[in-house]
Amino acid sequence: MSCWETIADYALRSQGIGERLLPRSDFTLCQQFVLIGSGMIWNIYFGIFALVSGFFLATAVAVGKAAQNPLYRKPAEWFIFIFRGSPLFIQFFFAYFVFLSLKQFSPFFDAFTSAWLGALIVLFLNTAAYSGEIFYGALQSIPKGDTEAADAYGLSGWSRFKRVIWPTMLRLAWPAYTNEAIFLFHATTLVFFSGFPATQQRGDALYYANYFADKTFNPFIPYPILAFYFILLTLAVIGIFGLVNNRLNRHLPQDRRKALKLKPQIIR
């Protein structure tokens, strides 16, 4: 079987399209590359949707935590504390079993017990909490002069937030937020190891890498392939976030503009 045939059979295997049976013996390098790559679709799906939806909630949570009124502040603080203070792995398990119990009461929750929705919700809430804390930190360090200038221009309320505070917050938070995005993509590999079943062996990249490692008892091929894909993904994330960073900093004088410098010492 040539590699093109393998690609045709397995490139969309993680979505249930193509060959039904996974290869069982005589694994070729091509099969491992294609299947693990096919699994990456899930990682990218979870990562992008959680990131985009989490971004909005994170902004709300950050503003809530910075609010004077305890009615807004307390829920935001608790939300951040609960999702940042406990392991994502346990959150997945807990959410899965909660959805499983809810399913008994109403068929409405059927979809929630499958990974595409249930795990996405957990990742969404989780990344919203982590990014919310990052944005909150940025809100706290917005230069006083910026808000004073906004006041001087007669901006207030929503327009002050939209035109001055929010862009500045994003600009300050962006390096840390890039880090969060990278680690969120890494966290997506946990999904199929934490309760959520991979129906018909439609799993993510790590699921297939683990499959090959179990079958061949040789971890030295599938995991480096997985590593290769994730390094590519990480570089892509850094590239895209770097472009956004340039745009966020475009109004600053050339010498004060900072290239996206990651602070890897702060991990999730």
């Binding site: 990278i182 993509f185 890494h186 966290a187 590999t189 946990l190 190891f193 790590l206 890498a209 683990n210 490692a213 008892f217 971890p219 030295f220 995991y223 997985l226 590593a227 994730f230 390094i231 990480t234 570089l235 890897p264």
Partner: peptide, 20 residues
Amino acid sequence: VVRGIPDIAFFLFFVIALDQ
């Protein structure tokens, strides 16, 4: 290396690799 790759992948990898 650890920055680019999920830590779970490392865990699964090292447990077999170290044993072998």
